[in-house]
Structures are given as C-alpha cells and as structure tokens.
Amino acid sequence: MTRYLARRLAFAAFLVFAVSSASLILTRLGEGDYVSGSLGIEARRETAAQARARYGLDKSIGEQYRTWLGRAVRFDFGNSLLYDRPVRDLVPERAANTAILAASALAIATLVGLPLGVVAGSRRGVVSGAIRSTSIVVLSLPPLLTSLVLVFVAARTGWFPIAGIRSAAVAPGGETLDFLHHLILPACALALPLAAVFERLQAQSMGEVIGEPFVLAALARGVTRRRIVWRDALKPALRPVTAIYGLVIGTLLSGSFAVEVTTSWPGLGNLMLDALRARDVYLVAGCAGAGAVFLACGTLVSDVALAMVDPRARE
C-alpha cells in the first residue's frame, strides 16, 4: 500500500509540474506577447522594450522558464501582468470559487444520481423507465447547453440571478443566502449531466449485483427487498461509480469552464480565459498549475478510495 501511494503521489507531483511548465512555455511560444497586446502596435519601440524588460519578457524562453521555475519552488509564481497582483494571491481566490462550484455540483449529482440509479436498477416498470429516459435526454445536454437553458429560464422568470457571485447591495447578514442564491444556477447546470452519468452507471451495476446468488439467498431467508437493495446490494454496486470519481474532477473542470463563462462565475475558467487572451504568461501558468493541483488531488483521493474498496487495484 505504501509503495502504491508513493507511486501515485509521484504521478500527482509530475502532473502539476508538467502542466504548469507546459502552459508557460506554450503561451510564450505563441505569436505576440502581453506587451504587444496591451500597448498596441502604435507604441514606441523604446516604451515596448522597457515594458518587456520590466516583465521579464525580453529574455529567451529557456532563461525565463528557469527563472520562473527557480522562484516557483519557493512558492513565488510571479506577478500577473494583467491585474498587476501576485499570482499567488489572485489564483487561490478564483480557484476557491471554482472549487465551491465543482464541489456543490458533485454533491448534487451524487445525491440525485445515485439514489435514482439504485431505484432504476433494482426494479422494472414505469418509474425505472422514466428515470432511464430522463437520464438519456439529460446526458445529451452538456454543461454549455444546460447553463444556457437555465440562464434563459432565469432571465425570463427572474427566479435566480443570471450572472456573477453576489448582488451589489445585500442586507447585512444576508451574504451567505445571497451567495447560495447565486450558486444554485451554475451548480445545477454543472450537476445535471453528471447526475445522469451516475444514474446510468449505478443502475447498470445495481442490475448486475441484483442478479447474483447472494441476493437470491438473502431473499430466500426472508430479508426484505428494501433492506437488500439499500444495504446488502448497494455496497458492492458502488464500485463503478467510485472508480470514476477521480476522472470526474477533470470533467468538472472542463464543464465548469463552460458554466463559468455563460454565468460569469468568477472562477478559474474565466481567469484562465482572460490570462490566455492577454498572453499573461505567469497567470496562465498559475491557473494551469491550480487546475492540475485539483486534478492531482482528485485522482489521489479516488485511487486511495478504490484501493480501499478493491484490493486488486493496488497492483
């Protein structure tokens, strides 16, 4: 188990290092830089050169990368050129917003998808058919579409705020409620397709477990159906969903990008987009690094969870 953990940890560290390095180098390789974008083509050559020297953009890629890496190991990720603030302050703030969005979406998807999957997988008939059909329809609605549709509904009805994270004027003490009010729409938009995936997987796995001899044996001994479904069969049937929990983090990050853009949620996705557009190299690397940290944590947690549920996975 220790060796397994060490290997997974090494992979996680490599992931963060590779992703942030690659994004820094890629952004630098691209045509144009922050200065050409912010000063425009009219700028005097000396002004532009001065600005480049100040931002460290006049050095070669290799040199710039080495300097950045040298500082990064001491947790100094440079200054954002666009916002003129340290990346170390800017990114965690936005990453926290994305984490809240993703965590609530994951919670909603699990709470909605798993029980529905258990129901759909353990019986036949109208209810099960309805859940299944709904899932297939929702599966065809990626987060970009769910968020557009929900924003449209919200704009028409006025039930939810359509953008942002907090209202301009809030009664004292109402901040949390206001925040939750803003969170509901993007979280649901992100959760819906995932809930459908969980439901389908859980239903499939439930159906398989129900067919096993131990279920028949329990029934024969007079254990109630409800007890078998929700206790005895549920645990072995949880394996497939547990197995994809690690991959879910990547999906959540991808999906939250679309949701953040459509609902103007100030998260990592919007920050990354701004940074990429402005060719703000250090900010791009910081955002990518933060995303990679999320991914690494997600895969680590799911690897450990899987190794605990299923010893064969430790190989």
Binding site: L15, A18, V19, S23, L26, T27, L29, G30, E31, G32, L247, G250, T251, L253, S254, G255, F257, A258, M272, L273, L276, R277, V284, A288, G291, L295, T299
Partner: peptide, 20 residues
Amino acid sequence: FIMVLPATYVALALRAVLPL
C-alpha cells in the same frame, strides 16, 4: 496522462497559442 487532463482546457490552451 492525456485522459486525466480536462479536455476543454487543453484545447483552449493549444488554440490560444496561435494567433486569434
């Protein structure tokens, strides 16, 4: 490695490298 990465971000980063 590629399967772990969030596809939207990779596509975004690769696309953004080239002129808009």
